[in-house]
Each structure stands twice: as structure tokens, then as C-alpha cells.
Design a binder for these strands. Sequence first.
DNA 1: ATTGCATATCGTCGATGTACGATATGTAAA
DNA 2: TTTACATATCGTACATCGACGATATGCAAT
Lengths: 113, 113
Amino acid sequence: MAKQSVVKMKKPCCDDTGPCRLPADRSAEQMAALAWAIAHPARVRIVRLLISRNTCVCGEIVDEMPLAQSTVSQHLKILKESGLVQGEVDGPKVCYCINPEKLAMLKALVASL
Amino acid sequence: MAKQSVVKMKKPCCDDTGPCRLPADRSAEQMAALAWAIAHPARVRIVRLLISRNTCVCGEIVDEMPLAQSTVSQHLKILKESGLVQGEVDGPKVCYCINPEKLAMLKALVASL
DNA sequence: ATTGCATATCGTCGATGTACGATATGTAAA
DNA sequence: TTTACATATCGTACATCGACGATATGCAAT
């Protein structure tokens, strides 16, 4: 997905001809953004890993993944940007953990489909 | 997401050194593929539209979206490839509807996180 | 057969994703 | 301060997305 794709609006969202569709669109964007975070097998595995070990891990993730360290770091960045994952420096290492609120939000949004 | 990205496996999945991680990976790919289907606001809106009108719609989708007909068709193609949406020709028109099984699978996979 | 409408596909463009190696940054220990 | 390690960022390359207009396809009515 284009994270900040500029969607050209041929129809205004809030006009005189119909009901305001903005809330639905915001929800759709929110949902799409969270879905996008787990729209890659590597990121699904990372999320599962972080959930299974409530003890936040860091470079162990790299060891679990068949990807280069830099690539894993990129995926972690995407997960952080989505809010699903939080990182906190702990000495020379960085501990990652799940953001339970965002995870709950993702679950709720999908469940409400 | 790269739909058919070839992930170079630096570690074999099923070897003598550890437990087979294939099922988890298949599940991760399945989940990522379904998440990818709704990882765009336009596709979220289409899915919601199809759910709200159990009566399968077709070109009405285009009227509801601020996108060109060809673009909507592309999104529908992606949704069809994911299995979340099914299309069936009805005369000159095409009726789309949700695949309840796939939707349930998506919900279950996300809920099982 | 031809016309007309609905939908899909094609071709193109710019933007982004995903992967890697190489390098920079930052922290703790020596 | 220097060294060593962990992580992030950079630069690059290739593939794909997402958007559009234009065109092709398919079906039904004339």
C-alpha cells in the first residue's frame, strides 16, 4: 500500500448532496493502516513472536527470521510506525513489545467487519 | 506487499536441527495475504459495501468510490485473488459478494493473534 | 450482425516495498 | 578513549502498487 498515497477526490466527502462519509473513511484508513502492518509474512511472524514472548525481545528476532538484519529492522520500523509495536532502548540493545491497545484495535476493527 | 516475493531462505524450514516451522509460515502467509487484501482504504470500503448489501452489487461500487472505473476493477481483482470476494456474471453485469468463509478465516486469524 | 452498455485488461507513469550489503550511530565494557 | 557489540540508516536494485485513460471483451437487445 502507498502509505501516504494522495487519493484524488473526484467527489467531495462532505457536501450538500449526501451524508458525510468522513468517519467511515477515517475508519477505513485506520483499518487499512493496521492491516498493512501485518500484510507481510515476516511482519506477521514478528508480531506473533512478540506476543508469544511477553518479555520484549530485540536481536533475537533477527535470529528467528531468514532475513538480513537490515531487512528485519525495516520491518520493525514499519510495525513501529503502525503503532502495533513499541521499542525501548535497554542498554546497547532495543527491546520490542506489542502495544496491546493497538492490537486490540486491530482485532476490534476486523471483528466489526 | 510483494504478493509473490521470493524470500531467500537462509535457514531451511524443515531440517534436523529443530522443529518444523512450515505450518507457522503457511499460516503467516495466509494471514498476510488476507490482511493485504484489506490493506488499502478503498478495498476496506468495498468490503464493507459488499457486507452491508448482501445483495451482490457490481458497478454500483464504482459510483460509491472516488476512483476511476479501471482502478476499482483493479481493487476488485485483488480482492477476488485473495478469495475474500467472489464475482459472478449476471447478464452484462457482474455481481460481487463476500465469501463468508474467507471473511471468517480472516477474522479468526486476526482474533487468534 | 450491430449497437450499446458494463466490465476487464492494457500501457504508462510515478511512488513505494522489499531485499541486501555497507556504513553510521549509540551504548557499555575494557 | 578505545573497543566491541547491537541496532538503525543509507544507497541501490528490482518488483509491485495505485492511479489514470484508452481499449478490448462480453452480453443483451434491436
